[in-house]
Write a protein that binds this DNA or RNA. Structure first.
Lengths: 339, 339
DNA sequence: GTCAATTGACGAAACGTTTAAGAAGCCGTA
DNA sequence: TACGGCTTCTTAAACGTTTCGTCAATTGAC
């Protein structure tokens, strides 16, 4: 079932059918209607692979998630897929390596399939050279969540530092002074921004964080559990509150505290970051900072398509609104501990 | 950068380079090595779109998730993507409509892009005609999780009925007699199998479930909350235990019970189904039945590729191992209520 | 030394589409 | 009548691969 079949049936040339199927002008009203009818009867649909070859651009976006099993990412993917579908694009989904780094083969494969644009989540700095080596210069790149400097790519994310400051301030307002930080990997721009935000707000309030109360761990629940245990061991007692690099760390830390017989938030307040779906469950009720993930996915597609239409646009950064969400894992500091 | 460029540089024909790049025989060892070297120097990679057009088959799988934001599905996607990558395939990701039904346009778009095979999760019966209308007969279809009868498609899932029986038996063994069921939509084969399994096991133990203790709701947390509320209202008191159609319903129900001042599992035991990631969190510790989602995704790819290689295989059903996971939301029935 | 079989390489057609360039018909005006 | 300017339609050349059929060169057997 090809253009040629429809053309034969309708008694016109292949070109005419092509013009009709692509809604191009220059076709008489009668023939257009006739072709449309025949195509419909025959169940004809354009072969997008052939179009892609001929035009040199495919209606396909490549999306690389850092880790698809991390509940943070699928909603971004949802936004990307929805916006892409509206624009008539398909989405190739891949994910990075287990260590959070980008897998060169994955990016290569995407390029082999002639993606029109590439969207990445949570790049790390060492991914930079890979991208410039592998991705053809005419393929737009959008990075979300994290940003690596100096690469040819648009960015979409939130003001992590501001969110972190607000969250730290929230704890300070609740009277906490003995505050620990379980930070995400400093290789991640988002994590280091958050850590910086925490530090700034605490410093402004005259609170200093001792080295043993400032731990760096990877962005998983297990890492959070281990870090919280280490916190308890090295300090000898629980902090009054803990600021975590993301929600998974926070949940892992809560696990650890509960296992030590501490209650949250009565004994220790815990705050996360991201507002993953499950943070809002009544069973958890985690205080956190929300990233508009679905909207970020949509916006990433807009950036990509805009640049596709106008390649010479200057590099752009879109910063979306975040929101401090106060729930049940943070509470007023105990009188005794607030000093 | 095309075959032609490499051929020119290596002083051989396009055909020869093609044979080399595809690891076909009939090329001398010296020329092969030379072509490989030149291709590497030039950074040449085959254009998969052109290959796809020429061969009529693309190295692409289409994956349609019922709902990407539902934490149940991304792990299936992870398995699919991993297995596909190993076989040199890319994966187009789409998702169904908000009502859980398949969107015809989505399937059409996937076919327009000449996917080699299509994998679906959680089809509903009314999706059947759509598939046979839209998907070309030479494109293998794999359905996972749920099965709709009579369509040209392989299936991969678990024995939902057996899992449900085991779970119900677990509650019976704990001494529960006043057991309610919050079932998923009966339009879903998985849900109705589970419901049937619950019923069978309860019936065998001589337990009958009153109509007001058997509610059907959709597979979301909110629906679970509402259903649990309705349960409490119409019955006047809490059941001793509740079997839920999936984990989300269970979590929603727990929410509702907690909101009514009941404790889980002291006042009421709750069991879910699926073992989504967060059911295992220490904050939840949900008793449930595990589906090996990652492996199901991988197996779906195997089925698809096998049928691609051998289209005349008889229809196949792969049933994977499930596992009853007993955690903290189910406990021995109170002496008083066990009657 | 001859001939058949094998190996290694090539030419060219095809896959289904897009699109530049051009032809045919029609209209109105000079 | 001749002609420029529309509109509508067609012809044909790509896009980058794969693969069939052919052929020259080499090998091995006699």
């Amino acid at each position: 079932m090809t253009l040629s079949d429809v053309a034969k049936q309708a008694g016109v040339s292949i070109a005419t059918v092509s013009y009709v199927m692509n809604d191009r002008g220059g076709v008489g009203e009668r023939t257009r209607a006739n072709v449309l009818r025949i195509a419909d009867e025959l169940g004809f649909r354009l072969n997008r692979v052939a179009s892609g070859l001929r035009t040199g651009r495919t209606q396909v976006l490549g999306l690389v998630l850092a880790d698809i099993t991390n509940p943070f990412y699928p909603e971004i993917a949802g936004g990307v897929i929805a916006a892409a579908a509206e624009a008539g694009f398909q989405v190739f989904l891949s994910h990075g390596g287990a260590d959070g780094r980008l897998d060169g083969e994955v990016v290569q494969a995407l390029c082999d399939h002639q993606c029109g644009a590439l969207i990445f989540t949570s790049l790390v700095v060492s991914d930079g050279p890979l991208l410039s080596d592998v991705v053809p210069p005419d393929v737009p790149i959008v990075q979300t969540v994290r940003r690596i400097p100096g690469i040819r790519a648009d960015f979409i994310g939130i003001d992590d530092r501001a969110g972190a400051r607000e969250e730290a301030q929230h704890l300070i307002d609740l009277g906490h002074r003995d505050i620990a930080v379980l930070a995400g990997p400093s290789a991640s721009s988002a994590s280091s921004e958050r850590t910086a935000g925490y530090r700034e707000a605490l410093a402004e309030a005259g609170i200093e964080v001792s080295p043993e109360s400032m731990l760096e761990c990877s962005l998983t629940g297990d890492a959070g559990t281990r870090a919280a245990q280490q916190l308890l061991e090295s300090r000898g007692h629980a902090p009054s509150a803990v600021l975590c690099g993301n929600d998974l760390i926070a949940l892992g830390a809560i696990d650890a505290f509960l296992a030590h017989g501490l209650s949250v938030p009565e004994d220790v307040s815990v705050a996360g970051y991201d507002d993953i779906w499950f943070a809002s469950s009544r069973l958890v009720q985690l205080t956190t900072v929300r990233q508009p993930r679905h909207e970020m996915g949509r916006a990433a597609v807009s950036l990509a398509l805009e640049r596709l239409a106008e390649p010479d646009l200057p590099p752009r950064e879109v910063i979306m609104e975040h929101e401090l969400v106060v729930r049940r894992t943070t509470a007023r500091a105990r009188a005794g501990t607030a000093a």
